[in-house]
Design a protein around this nucleic acid. Structure first.
Length: 487
RNA sequence: GCCCCCAUCGUCUAGAGGCCUAGGACGCCACCCUUUCAAGGUGGAGAUCAGGGGUUCGAAUCCCCUUGGGGGCACCA
């Protein structure tokens, strides 16, 4: 896998990495991570860190490559950052030049542009016209005298290239359609199509698995492999992840940062399971897979050719499944970062059963149990007094009901303040007053939690504690009084 | 404009000539359970397998064309 540290870890990169990782693990191979940082202007070690940490977070590990951002490499064919391999590219370029497989090109961007425009006008494919391909020594000297810097272009042999793609089968491309492409810029820096070939070959990469958007780079790279005398790897082009409108997934239309999903409380297990199925399935109706199980079952020849839309609903569903599969202790730990620092561990563990079945993302916990950590006045500000009124009741009913409940519960001691007893007492009150239990519970719920939708009421009250629960009922009574009916 | 790739419910997918009156899952809709919301359970709507031609006794599965969609055509990766 060879990500470019020019941005945070992208969902697409994560998926490609996963497929690479699974292919390597499934086949007992070696998984290599290489950082493609030749674009010095856009590459940062901060992004490198985000990528490496994101992959680790997903559970993806590699046998060769940098193990930490800015850290040392592991593996026999390093260095594994392209910025540290410049001498190799220079040597390869020299070999190409010496063998007549490449030449210096003195064309300026303006000249190139003019040619391109002309070709477009003639409805031709835009490509380099080969002007500098066979310059005489005099012509070369003349350009040099002008002070022009030369880029290096690769001589593309005009032949049809065929490869047996790991996911698509035979793919054919006519390189005669290609112009000679630049492999080294005028400033001496090497370009992608050239560096990957040198690196993949010198790192003995056997399987190149990448997105379908690279399919048209492959014939160029194969030509380079041949010119350089390298042995060809197998290529596999996996389908793209799509926006809901079926265009190539983009930040604009879909959330693409792995760090963002992580921050929102998606579990790596859910993301991995979800990503694996974007373009692959085991061929059965099973759909819950751990990384380990995927390592065992994943196979490139079950990978689809068509793109797959990123379906957020499905990710959400899977995340819920994985959250529910956690033990209470594990979930309490995972929830910690999403709860106020003031929340003690014991409280967190006790609140887990109340929220476990209600969480789509870990970050949802804040909304669910916010009433526990907000002060009474704030909770009272969350609702209008009308919300205290039971479905088919009057404001007076709400007031008298709440008062009855408060009076009843006041008699309980702190020690008795537990969910089951609270429920028993409230049901008794409901019966005495002739309320349906649900109708009575509504005003209590709103008073105590500030919302008409909350975790189970009595468990919530137990956690909140006697004093605060009673105080909030008093606050509610006060709010009803101001509408003019309480008292 | 040129080149290449792809095509099963809205979405992810099962399906490699007869097992398909096309299966599962998400989402959606009902109902059940239920203190709200979830979770769970049951059921339902939802794809004439993009369309048209072939091949075959037989096609979602093979071939061709059309249409639609996507990707690529840089001194980006």
């Amino acid at each position: 896998m060879a990500p470019s540290p020019t941005g945070p870890l992208h969902i697409g990169t994560a998926r490609t990495s996963l497929y690479n990782y699974l292919t390597a693990r499934h086949g007992g191979g070696t998984f290599v991570l290489r950082i493609e940082d030749t674009d010095v202007a856009r590459s940062t070690t901060e992004f490198e860190r985000d990528i490496i940490e994101g992959l680790h977070w997903l559970g993806i590990s590699w046998d060769e490559g940098p193990q930490a951002a800015g850290g040392d490499d592991i593996g026999p064919y390093g260095p594994y950052r392209q910025s540290q391999r410049l001498d190799r590219y220079a040597a390869a370029a020299e070999r190409l030049l010496a063998g007549g497989n490449a030449y210096r090109c003195y064309c300026t961007p303006e000249e190139l542009d003019a040619v391109r425009r002309e070709q477009e006008a003639d409805h031709e494919a835009p490509r380099y016209n080969g002007r500098c391909r066979s310059l005489s020594d005099d012509e070369r000297a003349a350009f040099e005298a002008e002070g022009r810097q030369a880029a290096i272009r690769f001589v593309v042999p005009p032949e049809t290239v065929v490869w047996d793609d790991l996911v698509r089968g035979d793919v054919e491309f006519d390189n005669a359609l290609l112009g000679d492409f630049v492999i080294v810029r005028a400033d001496g820096s090497p370009l992608y199509n050239f560096t990957v070939v040198v690196d993949d070959a010198e790192m003995y990469i056997s399987h190149v698995i990448r997105g379908e958007d690279h399919i048209s780079n492959t014939p160029k790279q194969i030509a380079l492999y041949r010119a350089l005398g390298y042995e060809l790897p197998r290529f596999g082009h996996i389908p793209l992840i799509l926006n809901p409108d079926r265009t190539k997934m983009s930040k604009r239309k879909t959330q693409t940062g792995v760090d963002e999903y992580r921050a929102q409380g998606y579990l790596p297990e859910a993301l991995v399971n979800f990503l694996a199925f974007l373009g692959w399935s085991p061929g059965t109706e099973e759909e819950l897979f751990s990384l380990r199980e995927l390592e065992e079952r994943f196979d490139l020849d079950k990978v689809h050719k068509g793109g797959a839309v990123f379906d957020k609903d499905r990710l959400d569903y899977l995340n819920g499944v994985y959250i529910r599969s956690l033990t209470d202790e594990q979930l309490a730990l995972a929830l910690r970062p999403y709860l106020p620092d003031a929340a003690v561990d014991e409280t967190v563990l006790r609140l887990v059963p109340l929220v476990k079945e209600r969480l789509v993302r870990l970050s949802d916990v804040g909304e669910l149990v916010g009433f526990l950590f907000a002060d009474d006045a704030e909770v009272a500000s969350w609702y209008e007094s009308e919300e205290l009124v039971p479905r088919k009741g009057e404001v007076v009913d709400a007031a008298s009901a709440l008062r009855a409940v408060r009076d009843e519960l006041t008699r309980l001691t702190d020690a008795d303040w537990a969910a089951d007893l609270l429920e028993t007492r409230c049901r008794e009150v409901a019966e005495r007053l002739g309320f349906k239990a649900g109708d009575l519970f509504k005003p209590i719920r709103v008073a105590v939690t500030g919302r008409s939708v909350s975790p189970p009421l009595f468990g919530s009250m137990e956690l909140l504690g006697r004093e605060r629960s009673l105080a909030r009922m008093d606050d509610a009574l006060g709010k009803l009084a101001t509408v003019g009916v309480g008292g």
